[in-house]
Measured scan of single mutants.
Amino acid sequence: MTEYKLVVVGAGGVGKSALTIQLIQNHFVDEYDPTIEDSYRKQVVIDGETCLLDILDTAGQEEYSAMRDQYMRTGEGFLCVFAINNTKSFEDIHHYREQIKRVKDSEDVPMVLVGNKCDLPSRTVDTKQAQDLARSYGIPFIETSAKTRQGVDDAFYTLVREIRKHKEKMSKDGKKKKKKSKTKCVIM
Rank of each mutant, 00 (worst) to 15 (best):
I36M: 05
S145R: 10
K117Y: 15
K117V: 15
L133S: 09
D69H: 10
Y64S: 15
Y71P: 12
Q129A: 13
Q70G: 01
I55V: 08
D57F: 00
Y137C: 09
A146Y: 02
R97F: 15
I36C: 00
I36T: 00
P110H: 10
K184R: 08
G60T: 02
H166F: 09
F78G: 01
P110C: 04
L79Y: 15
K5Y: 02
Y40I: 01
V152C: 08
G115D: 07
Q129V: 05
E37Q: 03
V9D: 03
I21G: 05
Q22F: 02
I187L: 13
T58K: 01
G13N: 11
V44A: 08
T127D: 12
E98A: 06
K169N: 08
Q43F: 03
C185W: 04
A59I: 15
H27D: 04
G115Q: 07
S171R: 03
I46V: 05
D108C: 08
R97Y: 15
L120F: 13
Q99V: 11
D108I: 10
D132I: 08
K180L: 08
F82K: 04
D108A: 12
V125A: 09
K172H: 07
L120E: 13
A18R: 02
V152P: 07
I139D: 01
C185T: 12
K128H: 09
D119G: 09
D33W: 13
T50I: 04
Y64L: 15
L113N: 01
T2I: 07
Y157L: 10
N26G: 05
R97Q: 11
K128N: 09
K128P: 09
Y40Q: 02
V8C: 07
S122F: 09
Q129H: 09
F82E: 05
L159G: 05
V81T: 10
F82A: 12
E91G: 07
D132K: 10
V29H: 09
D119K: 03
Q150V: 09
K177D: 06
S106R: 09
G138D: 06
C185I: 08
K165T: 14
K182N: 05
P110M: 03
A83N: 14
S145T: 13
D47E: 06
V103Y: 01
S106V: 13
K5D: 14
G10T: 02
R41T: 04
V81N: 04
K117I: 14
K167Q: 09
G15K: 03
K165W: 06
Q43K: 03
G77Y: 14
S39A: 12
E162T: 09
I36K: 00
Q43W: 02
D54R: 00
Y137M: 14
S65M: 13
Y40N: 00
Q99S: 07
F78Q: 01
M170C: 09
K172G: 06
P140A: 06
R97W: 15
G12W: 04
K184A: 05
A11L: 11
G77K: 04
T50N: 02
A83T: 13
K16M: 02
I21W: 04
P110I: 02
H166V: 09
V14L: 12
T35Q: 00
K42M: 15
E98L: 03
D132M: 08
V152M: 10
T74D: 07
P110Q: 01
D30C: 07
S65I: 13
Y32M: 01
L53H: 01
V112S: 01
D47I: 01
S17N: 00
T183F: 04
Q43M: 03
K184W: 09
K175Y: 14
K180G: 06
D154V: 07
T74Q: 15
D173T: 09
S122N: 13
C51P: 05
L159T: 07
E31K: 00
L52S: 05
C80W: 10
I36G: 00
K128W: 08
T20R: 00
K42H: 04
T20L: 13
T158V: 10
N116T: 15
V81G: 07
Y64K: 01
R68F: 15
Y4I: 09
D54M: 01
G77F: 14
D57T: 00
L53Y: 13
P121N: 14
V7C: 05
S122I: 08
S39D: 03
S136Y: 15
V114D: 04
T158G: 10
T74Y: 15
I36F: 09
